[in-house]
Every structure is written in C-alpha cells, then in structure tokens.
Design a protein around this nucleic acid. Structure first.
Lengths: 250, 250
DNA sequence: TACTTGCCTTGACAATGGTCAATAAAAACT
DNA sequence: AGTTTTTATTGACCATTGTCAAGGCAAGTA
C-alpha cells in the first residue's frame, strides 16, 4: 500500500519538474518505475566526489550540500540545494564520476533515478536536450556571478547579497526573512569562516540598520542593503536571474 | 581574391571546430556565408556586458578577455581564451544579452557568426545539442574547480596550479614554459592584484625552486610544484580535465 | 531542573592580500 | 641609440579574513 502511494507520489514530483515538461508519458513512467525515494539523515553522505555515477537525484525535502574536499579535510562548498532541484545529472557528459560529494544538512528526501535513462532520453528527445542546455546555461551564469562576488565583494557585502536574494525583491516596505539553514552553513556557502560570518553580519547590521534575532532578519527597506552590497556587483538590483523559475540545480 | 581566400580560410576554421563535427555541410556553408572575420586591436572591446547578443565568436588569433565590471570600474575576469575557443554562444538560452564583456588583450582575430543560425541548428540537430551539452558540462566543472581554488588555495598555490596547467603533466624531467600573456593579466585571471602576484611568484620560487626569467619559467621537476599546489585541491595530479580536447570555451 | 550538546559569538593575535608610492626593467617608438 | 611608455617589482602600511581559545546561549535530553 505504502509503496503504491509512494510511487504515485514520486511520479507526481517527477512530472512536476519543469525540466521534464517536454518529455512523453512513457519516459516519465519508465523513470518512475526505476526511481527510488531515499531518506537521508542529518549529515548523511549520499555519494562522494569521484564515485562512479549511475544515478541522479531530485530533492523533495530538506537541504543537500554539494562540496569538494582536499586530502586534509578542508572543504569548499559548491552549492546548497533544496526541494525541486536536481543534482548529479551532469556526469552523463564526459565523465562517469561525480564532480563533488553530496551530503544532507538535515533530514532530507531525494528521489534517485538512473542516469542511463536520462542519457538515452536526451539523445532521443531534442526538446529535453534543449531544456537541459538552457538550465546549464543558467547555472553557468550563476557560477560566473559567484566567482565575481568572491573577487570583488567583501564578507559583509556577500552576506547582504545572500539576504537580498532570499527576499521578494519587488517588495517595498519592511521585509522579514529566515535563514534557510545554519549560520555556519551559510558561511561555508559564502566561502568564509563562521567567525568571519558572525563579525561580518554584525558589521552589516551597523552599516545598513537591519535587525537580527537568531535566524530571523528584518530589513526596513531593501534600498539600504542593495546600495551596500550591489555597489560591488556588475549586475543591477533587482537581480534579473531570480525571475526565472527554479529548475535544475547543482 | 583576398575575400575569396578569406572565406575559404574561415570555412576551414569553422569546420575544424570539434563542436561542429556533428553538423552537416549545408549548415557549415550557411554559417560560413554569414561569418565575418574581425580583427581586433589591443584593448579593443568587442561587446559589453548586457549588450544585445546577436552573434557568437570563434577565436582564430590572439587572446580575448571575458570580464564583468561594477559601476566604479572594478573588474572581475571571467576567463581569458585563445585560438580554437568559442565565446558569446550561451546567450541563446534564457536571455539575449551577453553575460560579460569581451576585450582583446592583444591584436587578435575572431570569426563572428550569427547566433540565430546556431540556435535553429541546435534545435534541429540533436548531435549538436549533445556536443554543446557536453562542452557546457565540461566548462561547468572548470568553474566549480575555479571557485574551489579561490576558496582553499592561497595566491602562491593558485599560481603554481596555473603554471602546472600550462605544462605537459606527463613530462618527467625539467620543463620550461612561457606565460601566455602579461603577468598583470595572469594576476587578474587568478583573482589577485599584480603586486600580490609578483610577491606570491617570488614566494613560489623560494618554496619550490622554480626558475624565473621574465615570462619564462623553468621547473626542474613537476613534483615539487604539484605537491605544493595540489595539496590545496580536491583533485589529483595530473589534472584529468586537461586530457579532454579543447573545444568550446567561455 | 540540571546536564549535555551543538551552534554562535567574542577576543586576541597571525596571516594573507590590498593599496599607494617609488623605482626598476623591459618593450615600443622615433 | 635615446626616448617614451608600459609592465613589473619593492617597500611601507592598512584592511580583511583566518586561527585558536574561551565563553555564552539555546534546544533537546535525562
């Protein structure tokens, strides 16, 4: 029973993916047939960098951290993704190894699907290939921007930018947001140490007058923040790239 | 006469692109018919960030710097590409604006081709779409690695890594290389100031015993360098990603 | 309630990289 | 060859971020 219910559930979630809109019923059915729902405990590792890649994943609950780490354990966070995002799908091209490790940052659920099916469908279905290209192009721009920010924004500005991207940037008045995950994790996502994050957030508070209560942050207006952070960014506020519906992540 | 010769020349260069291997003669002919050879003087800007994108480019001579810059002129170098690389081609998807500015760092030549042709061909030719996906996936990994390096490598290590990637990493004995462009430019490519580059290169020399004469650098063995730089990298030496034939850049 | 654990903050200090200014060296020009 | 311009190096100093260690706070557990 539960398994049947689960399958229906999985099927719905797969079909809801914008990326698969262009795909026929039969493909979605085959995909669902081979899909598995995986529950990950906090800090559970799904796969590690250089593992043989045979499956890709769709997040349905929680947050997944993608990262790479050196021999001595130093790690660089590639991205932190949540529901509706895909990851591990790029291994189809060129290599059959995952380019990063994946770990749940809290209790999470992902749907695991075989890469082989995706691969043959991409080869057979030009619309899917195009959708995939489009999502990769979008991701690429995000990465370009990320690199830009690491180069020209300081810690406080990066935090400000991160906060702004959590808001509805059209909003006029006072806006309140909640950090989507631990401050420590936000810090690593932004490429800084937790201590630096803590101090830089304090500085941001002084300079822009935002209010901070734990993970809850209130900004009287977005103008103060955006003029502080976006001064060191090549793009205008509001961020255009946010208007595009989220689809493929990683 | 000269124009005929030029067209033949352009045609050959376009056909030689690995990306277009999967394309039929007719497409290549149409592309060539609408292609233009453009000569860029040193520091000449080809297009700027947010310009309407109508054409994409293949470099046939020189070096092109892709960069983004803030209102106050601070710039972040996205990439620096040379002969055989494509750029400006990602604008087909999602947006019709270039995501960066492009400038020649020395006298260079590029072949300019209409994006519209590429777009329709990608939609019609699954093999091209796949080749494109593959090249984007490769680029994406490069960017992931770039971001990783900015996070966990210091200036000297990044320079060491840059140098190693200019060598034939299979080589056993002494290796000599020439910097492909100005030190100032290498510095910006690696996200640091020229002064920092200069000092960090000096430090690298002390720590690994490389020899530096202007733009010529000699390393007695790659081991010293790789153990110095690759200690702060999640991937092994030699770098696997270099073995893939160069094709689409940007 | 007390205890434990994980997360966050703070202080003191070190390391790294950026800035500004002066100089040197190299390349391009006449 | 001599002049000019560009590129590279160096020193002195400052700003930012990282590191290590201690303490605080909050959520969950006994």
């Amino acid at each position: 029973m539960s398994s049947v219910k689960t399958k229906t559930d999985i099927s719905e979630k797969i079909s809801a993916m914008p990326l698969f809109k262009a795909c026929g019923e039969d493909f979605l059915e085959r995909l669902t047939a081979q899909a598995q729902l995986i529950t990950l405990e906090k800090n559970q590792v799904l796969f590690v960098h250089e593992d043989e890649s045979t499956r890709f994943f769709l997040i349905t609950k929680g947050w997944i951290k993608l990262f790479r780490e050196t021999f001595d354990g130093t790690q660089a966070v590639v991205d932190i993704l949540t529901s509706g995002h895909l990851f591990g799908e790029t291994s189809i091209f060129q290599s059959d190894k995952y380019p990063y490790s994946a770990e749940a940052t809290e209790r999470s659920e992902v749907i695991s699907m075989p890469l082989s099916l995706l691969k043959t469908e991409i080869e057979a279905n030009p619309k899917l290939a195009l959708a995939m290209l489009s999502s990769m192009a979008r991701y690429r721009r995000q990465q370009d921007q990320e690199l830009e920010h690491r180069t020209i924004q300081n810690a406080s500005q990066r935090i400000g930018c991160f906060l702004l991207r959590l808001t509805n940037q059209e909003e006029d008045g006072s806006v309140t947001i909640h950090l989507p995950y631990d401050k420590t994790l936000v810090a690593s996502r932004l490429g800084m140490q937790p201590e630096t994050f803590s101090r830089a957030l304090g500085k941001l508070k002084n300079e822009t007058g935002i209010e901070i209560k734990g993970a809850t942050i209130t900004m009287k207006s977005l103008d103060q923040l955006s003029s502080y952070s976006c001064a060191a960014c090549s793009s205008d506020f509001p961020c255009k790239d946010l208007k595009v519906s989220a689809s493929s992540g990683s």
